[in-house]
Design a protein around this nucleic acid. Structure first.
Lengths: 143, 143
DNA sequence: CTTTAAATCTATAGATTTTATAGATTATAA
DNA sequence: TTATAATCTATAAAATCTATAGATTTAAAG
């Protein structure tokens, strides 16, 4: 399961994608629209900004806006940023690898191989789902 | 990420699959072999027994053994039992569904559709990975 | 029928992570 | 210079995960 933090991040990003290149959007507005506690959202947006996915503008008329192109931001990146590893086991994680005490021999561990398959399948699907793709699909359905 | 509980459960089940139809195996032996805290493993095995995946025998010469055929127990079932939903969001879970406040309209929500795809891909792979399959793969590699 | 071995059950404690909030500070527009 | 909105620091509340202790039940073996 994704954390609420990650879920909130994705919702906020989709919201900002719908406003892409239309100027800054205030935290409060996103919080209200997506039912996210404002202070919590604040921390999340800051993290997305540090990752250069969002930019912000302070002061009157300020707010957050999508910095990267919607086609270049996918769910893999967002989830890794918010929740860490995509893989279900540390020993098969590409970005957050940790050896596991249980299996002495990684090469022959059947469990490890099963979860490598899961990781690959998940990465494939999450990678295809960019912000642009998600918003496009939404619009398609609405018409 | 899977919980340690779930990881322990899978390791224990694979261990018991290797001893399939060879009589009861004691908790202590499994705990030692797989480096799992005995008391924790105790609770895990009990849960697997209640789910009719394992059976047990009390008293001297007792222990746990795999009840179901190794071909019929897959990772989907074990993970659901230990950790709950396979899906990354409650609103796309088949067995642990919960509506989400964020998306007012599930049918048009692009996020939801993305994670439905992830769920399906994950279920597909986890479903193929039965205990029999995992052990078979292990043996293949060892030779 | 007594001893020993092993699962079972109940209860709880410690640690960690997640989620959320408060308040002070900084930057910017008008 | 005032109002607005992001930024930063600190912390607290809640939930979950991991682990352990001790008493009880069941069954085999002598």
């Amino acid at each position: 399961m994704l954390s609420k933090k990650c879920k909130y991040a994705i919702h906020a990003l989709v919201y900002l994608t719908e406003r892409y290149q239309q100027g800054p959007v205030q935290i409060q507005e996103i919080a209200d629209a997506q039912h996210i506690p404002k202070k919590f959202l604040e921390a999340i947006l800051l993290e997305l900004r540090h990752a250069k996915i969002l930019h912000s503008k302070k002061g009157k008329g300020g707010g957050y806006y999508l910095y990267r192109k919607p086609e270049t931001v996918n769910l893999v990146e967002v989830i890794r940023l918010m929740d860490g590893a995509i893989a279900l086991l540390p020993c098969v994680s590409l970005n957050y690898y940790e050896p596991c005490e249980e299996c002495r021999d990684e090469k022959t561990c059947g469990i490890r191989q099963a979860f490598s398959q899961v990781r690959d399948a998940t990465l494939e699907v999450l990678g295809q789902n960019t912000l642009a793709e998600i918003v496009k699909r939404q619009k398609r359905k609405k018409s």
